[in-house]
């Protein structure tokens, strides 16, 4: 396949792109200022905290970032719910039975049992896993974070033990979120052979038609008003390549 034949499809609007930018920055800030507090006994953490201006400054940055993240998430949830309810947006992020089948199909494909990977819609099961992970984790983080920020107010409604429990939850969930992002998300967006050196879709808002064929054939079929078989090439007697032959140009 040569470069001229690369056809691009708009995947994300400015809103989603901006949302990702803000989220990425805020998440990085939260991880830096949060993990250095969790692992406060280690030299690099101490260096970082002192370099940023001390523990009070680090806590302030963490809280402002946390607040920004919470607001971003709240706006997202409200607007997404409204969009879905008012039928302006398709409910493409809703987890369906198909996602579980897709996951099993993909496993079969990895082990060589199936001939082709799962045929996914706009968001595949991996992306939905990450999305809902961020939403659920974010809700936990925001809630426990607020409890830790205002402990005296929190104990008016909750038993005292909820404060250290909130701290344990916040700290562990934060660590989990960081580990998932650093392994799963960074692999899928950077190191995966299919996108290496970088999946630019969320930055440019565009994705190549070729990648759509492999990764989101169901959506592509709907967009182009074709059948799934037409998209993946089965209808033309010639099987479509199962993986990308080379990195995108």
């Amino acid at each position: 396949m040569n470069k001229e034949s690369q056809e691009y499809i708009r995947r994300f609007g400015v809103g989603r792109i901006a949302e990702h930018h803000v989220n990425a920055i805020v998440f990085a800030l939260l991880v830096i200022t949060g993990l250095s507090q969790r692992f406060h006994e280690y030299g690099p953490s101490q260096w970082l905290i002192l370099t940023l201006g001390g523990i009070d400054v680090v806590r302030l940055i963490h809280r402002i970032s946390g607040l920004t993240f919470t607001l971003l998430m709240a706006v997202h949830i409200v607007s997404a719910s409204a969009g879905v309810i008012l039928k302006k947006w398709p409910a493409s992020m809703i987890i369906a039975v198909k996602d579980f089948h897709d996951a099993i199909d993909n496993m079969k494909y990895y082990f060589g049992i199936a001939k082709h990977p799962a045929r996914c819609d706009r968001y595949d099961y991996k992306q939905k896993f990450e999305y809902w992970g961020v939403i659920a984790g974010g809700a936990i983080m925001a809630m426990t974070g607020l409890i830790l920020w205002y402990p005296t107010t929190a104990v008016r409604l909750l038993p005292g033990e909820f404060i250290p429990a909130a701290k344990a939850l916040h700290s562990n969930e934060g660590l989990l979120a960081f580990l998932v992002i650093i392994t799963w998300h960074i692999y899928n967006a950077v190191f995966s052979p299919e996108v290496f050196p970088l999946d630019t879709a969320i930055f440019t808002g565009k994705i190549s038609r070729e990648r759509m064929v492999h990764e989101h054939p169901v959506e592509l079929a709907r967009l182009e008003g074709k059948s799934l078989d037409e998209i993946v090439g089965n209808g033309h007697g010639k099987p479509a390549p199962q993986t990308r032959p080379s990195t995108p140009g």
Partner: peptide
């Protein structure tokens, strides 16, 4: 504004 159960926050 610490309430009576506030010290329970400390284990």
């Amino acid at each position: 504004g610490a309430t009576k159960n506030f010290p329970d926050a400390w284990l």
